[in-house]
């Protein structure tokens, strides 16, 4: 009896094989038709999408880096340009200032010279006028004194001699 029952553990049963085959084929068909198709397909499309998005992201990153480096380059250039312009402006300003200064100095000198010349001329004129005035005054005084004694000619000669005898200045 033990033997018989133990045999049943390893003896394939015809009915079970029959039903099992049918059941498994139906099971396989149902899963094949309605189960695995959508699942594996969806997973594959998702994987593709993930892969493509990663690739896109990497491309975008590379592009961004390129743009960044370009921007950096452009900025550096702009800075250099700005510095150059500033330097030039400063230089030209300096030049301008020096030019202006020289011009001013010239003008001042000129004005000085003019003023001196004017002063000289005025001085000469004033001296001359003074001399004439003094002469006239002397003549008048002398003429008053010696109106009758002396003629005009003699008196003038006398005064002139006197003036010449006066120390210069």
């Amino acid at each position: 009896m033990t033997e018989v029952i133990a045999q049943s553990l390893v003896q394939p049963d015809v009915g079970l094989i029959f039903w099992k085959t049918i059941a498994f084929l139906i099971f396989l068909f149902l899963l094949y038709r309605y189960g695995w198709g959508p699942i594996t397909e969806a997973m594959e499309s998702r994987e593709e999408e993930i892969e493509s998005s990663i690739q896109r992201a990497e491309e975008a990153l590379a592009e961004a880096k390129e743009i960044q480096s370009e921007n950096k380059k452009a900025r550096r250039e702009a800075e250099r340009e700005a510095q150059r312009i500033l330097r030039e402006a400063r230089e030209s300003a300096e030049e301008l200032r020096e030019e202006e200064m020289a011009k001013t100095r010239d003008r001042i000198q000129q004005m000085q010279e003019q003023a001196q010349a004017e002063i000289e001329r005025e001085k000469q004129a004033a001296l001359q006028e003074l001399r004439d005035e003094v002469a006239d005054l002397a003549i008048e005084a002398a003429s008053k004194v010696v109106r009758d004694d002396l003629d005009g000619e003699r008196q003038r000669k006398l005064v002139n001699d006197f003036i010449d005898d006066l120390p210069k200045n």
Binding site: P38, I39, A42, M43, S45, E49
Partner: peptide, 19 residues
């Protein structure tokens, strides 16, 4: 198994797990 995967298949069809 059928119950699990037929339900899951519907889910994938709806887009959960696809998009």
């Amino acid at each position: 198994v059928l119950a699990i995967f037929l339900v899951l298949a519907q889910r994938y069809k709806r887009g959960v797990g696809r998009t």
